[in-house]
Amino acid sequence: MSDNNPAAGSTSAGDPPAAYDRPTDEQILSFERKIKEPESQAQLVGPLTSFDNLIAEYANGNPAILAKLHALSTSYCGLRATRRDGNCFYRAIAFRLCELLASRRGTPWADAVVLRLGPECREVAKEAGYNMDLMGDFADCWEDAVRDGDVEGAMADSVVCWLRIVTAAVLKKNSDLFEAFILDSYPTLELFIGSQVEPMNVEADQPHIVAIATALGVTIRIGNLDSSSTAEGAMNWHEIDPLEPLAVTSKVDTDGPDPVVELLYRPGHYDIVYKQAA
C-alpha cells in the first residue's frame, strides 16, 4: 500500500489510545482532492463536439453501446461534455435551458417557462419552508442568467445550488407521490432531501429528474447509453414531463413543438446532446 493512502494506519474508535496514527480529516480530504484533481480542472460545460471521441472510447468496448452511439450520431449532431463533479445534471439543464430560451425569446413557450422558473419557483421554495432571505441570491443568479441569455452565468455553482433547492421544494410539495419511491432506502423524505438533493456534488436520480422537470415546466429527454441490446441498436429514450404541464397561451403552429432538454446518460453522469437541424 502506498504511503499516501489514508486508509493505511487508520484505526477504529475502539482501538487503544496508543493508535493515534489516524490521519486528520484535513489529510484525508486533501488526499481525496488530489485524486479528483484532473476532473476538477475539466470545463464545467465543454464545447459542442461530434460523437467521434465517445465512439473511439467505446471502440473496443461493449458492442451494444457502440451500436447506440452510431444510431445516435445519425440524428444528433453532437454533445457538450460536462464536468463529472456530481453537479452535472443540474448544470446541464441550466445551460441547455438557458440556450433554448435565448433562441426562442418572446415565444409563448419561452414566456411561460420564464414565469415558471422565476416567480413560481420562488413561491414553491418559500412554501416548502426555505428562507428566501438566505436563498434569494441564488435565485437572482439563475434569473439573471436566463434574462441575459448568459450561459456562462447559468453554469455557476450558485445556479446549481438554486436548482437543487427548487428540486427539493417540488419533492416536499408532492411528498405523497415521491415517498413511495424513496422510503425503501431512506427513513424519511426529509433525510433523502438533506443528504441527496440539497448538498452540492451529489448526483441526481429518477425522483430528482421528475421534480426538476416539474419545477421548471420543461420536458427532459434522457438517452440511456447502457449495455442492454435493443432492436437495431436503437437508444432507449426516457421522456420526463412536468407533473403540472406548462400553461402556454396563444400557441401558434409556426412555433413547432415545445423545445425539450436532451441529455445523454451513462451511470453517474449526464452530458448534453444536440439534435441535427431538421
Binding site: E32, Y130, S195, E198, P199, V202
Partner: peptide
C-alpha cells in the same frame, strides 16, 4: 478544539464514514 460533526461535512467529504442518512452540510444550513 476542531469540531467534527456531520453537518460540517458535505456528503463525500467523509473522513469518518458518517451514517448514510445523517445531516450534512448544504447551502440551506446556517
Amino acid at each position: 478544539g476542531t469540531v467534527c460533526i456531520s453537518i460540517l461535512h458535505p456528503p463525500g467529504d467523509d473522513p469518518h464514514q458518517y451514517e448514510h442518512a445523517s445531516e450534512r452540510w448544504s447551502p440551506v444550513q446556517s
